[in-house]
Computed example of a mutant assay.
Amino acid sequence: MNAVRRALGSSAVQVFLVLVGLVWVTPLAGLLMSSLRSAEDTARGGWWTVFSSPGQLSLDNYSALLENAGITRAFWNTVLISVPTTVLVVVLAALAGYAFAWLDFPGRDAVFLVVVALLVVPVQVGLLPVAKLFGQLGLFGTIPGVVLFHVAYGLPFAVFLLRNYFAELPKEMLEAARMDGGGEWRIFTRLVLPVGRPAIASLAIFQFLWVWNDMLVALLFADSSSQPLTVELQSQIRQFGSNIDVLAPGAFVSLVVPVVVFFAFQRHFVQGVMAGSVK
């Protein structure tokens, strides 16, 4: 009887997970089908009509997308914003996290409390003051300006996350490395970074997704030559209304890149999320 209950319970969970997966995948499938249909086909019926008329599917929209100067420029702007921001946040946070966790220097705890306090500062509070500062420095409306803003607001959480992860490393392991003559830089690069790879991968995924999908910061700090894909798609909607043959493939490209990044680092992401949950 218990075996039957366990089997039924397991089946119910599996059915529930399948339903959740279908609910999550359906909008993505609809967007993909819409991106492969012409504007005329889209106006005549919903995306599900491709199952009865597969001849609607075509790569013409993507060919036109590649010829759209605004979309292609915005895509590369997004890459030039997201990748440097993610790299800078991860590198700086890893260095600071190790310092706060294992190096003894004056004011360490006070500085770390300031970093923790910055976690509660909303992004909206700094938009106007930083915009004024960037205007004086000549960074307003440039890709470096957008990158610097994202780095500044991404670092508090990143430092907090990696410091807590590094602090859980066995003290004996680091002391043994020091007794063997290893300097702090060697310990950090050869020991701490490999062991902390799950947390670093999780941080990189979170940071990349946040920056790639950002619109608020880009709307204020980027101009027409440096705006990312999210702002360009919003501008296309505002200018042309229902040009689904451009918006659908553009939105799908904007969506599929973070999905690919997530699945590429999925194993490390799960390890990072589960780290410390099981003793």
Rank of each mutant, 00 (worst) to 15 (best):
8 L>P: 00
238 R>L: 15
245 D>V: 02
99 A>L: 03
254 S>L: 15
112 F>Q: 00
128 L>F: 04
109 D>F: 07
55 G>K: 05
75 F>Y: 15
182 G>Y: 01
139 L>W: 14
203 L>C: 10
47 W>G: 00
25 V>P: 06
213 N>V: 06
94 A>T: 11
212 W>D: 07
172 E>F: 05
82 S>P: 06
85 T>W: 11
66 L>I: 06
131 A>V: 02
268 H>D: 15
162 L>P: 06
246 V>H: 04
32 L>R: 01
212 W>Q: 04
87 V>M: 13
81 I>Y: 13
120 V>E: 08
171 K>T: 08
183 G>T: 05
228 P>L: 09
216 L>T: 13
112 F>V: 00
116 V>F: 07
44 R>W: 04
243 N>T: 15
157 F>L: 14
134 F>C: 02
103 L>R: 11
159 V>D: 00
40 E>H: 06
277 S>P: 06
70 G>A: 12
32 L>T: 07
154 G>K: 02
88 L>E: 05
34 S>F: 09
122 P>C: 07
205 I>E: 00
262 F>R: 08
61 N>P: 07
44 R>L: 12
70 G>P: 07
240 F>L: 11
248 A>C: 11
20 V>K: 01
228 P>C: 13
110 A>D: 02
219 L>Y: 14
224 S>W: 11
87 V>I: 15
19 L>D: 05
193 L>G: 08
124 Q>C: 01
160 F>R: 03
144 P>A: 02
239 Q>S: 12
182 G>S: 13
237 I>Y: 14
134 F>D: 02
95 L>M: 14
228 P>M: 13
82 S>G: 10
101 A>G: 04
223 D>A: 14
274 M>V: 15
214 D>T: 05
115 V>I: 13
51 F>Q: 03
223 D>I: 09
147 V>I: 15
145 G>E: 03
219 L>K: 12
212 W>G: 07
228 P>W: 09
161 L>R: 10
228 P>V: 06
11 S>K: 10
144 P>H: 04
160 F>K: 02
77 N>C: 08
158 A>Q: 02
202 S>W: 01
35 S>M: 08
218 A>L: 11
26 T>S: 13
153 Y>M: 08
52 S>W: 09
202 S>E: 03
132 K>H: 01
135 G>I: 09
205 I>N: 04
205 I>K: 00
57 L>K: 02
192 V>N: 04
91 V>S: 07
243 N>G: 15
72 T>W: 03
109 D>W: 06
33 M>L: 15
83 V>L: 14
271 Q>C: 12
20 V>Y: 05
144 P>R: 03
